[in-house]
Amino acid sequence: MLFMQFKTGKERYIFEARDIIEVIPYANLKPIPKAPPYVAGLLNYRGHTVPVVDVCYLMSDKLCEPKLSTRIALVNYKGVNYKNEHNATVCIGLLIEQLTETVRFDEADFSDSGVVLKDDPYLGKVVIDDHGIIQLVNIKKIIPAEAQDMLFDSVI
């Protein structure tokens, strides 16, 4: 399976590449007043508005630094769309630091991390390579429940 790798600080994380539509540079985003800090803003993607979420902030309480390696992964996300249809596929942008590499692992390579955080259910199994431990991130669970209504009501 193909995974997209990123880093927050020095720690490496991966998420499944199959949900990615496109990885794009850190374009200008329209800020949303009074939105929580992890909402980076709105992106005009080919004429559609796509909400962009700062994954670094969600994971480490630090906003993504504006660097060339900071990029936006556009992913398909199951949620409630603007027509109030449940389980509709919506597009969402994930702003992530050091999003520069893809890696391949087999499902059998993964093992349980042994630590399950109730507040952060997005952290999943771990895999070990020569550089250390990489943790799998479930991007479907990374957006806090209270943010989902707010984000997906605006998505087209």
Binding site: A27, N28, L43, N44, Y45, K67, L68
Partner: peptide
């Protein structure tokens, strides 16, 4: 990739992606 974003880079990509 691990350096500051050059001037105009973000503006240009914002235009392209729109």
């Amino acid at each position: 990739y691990d350096r500051a974003i050059p001037e105009d880079y973000r503006d240009e990509w914002t235009r392209v992606l729109a």
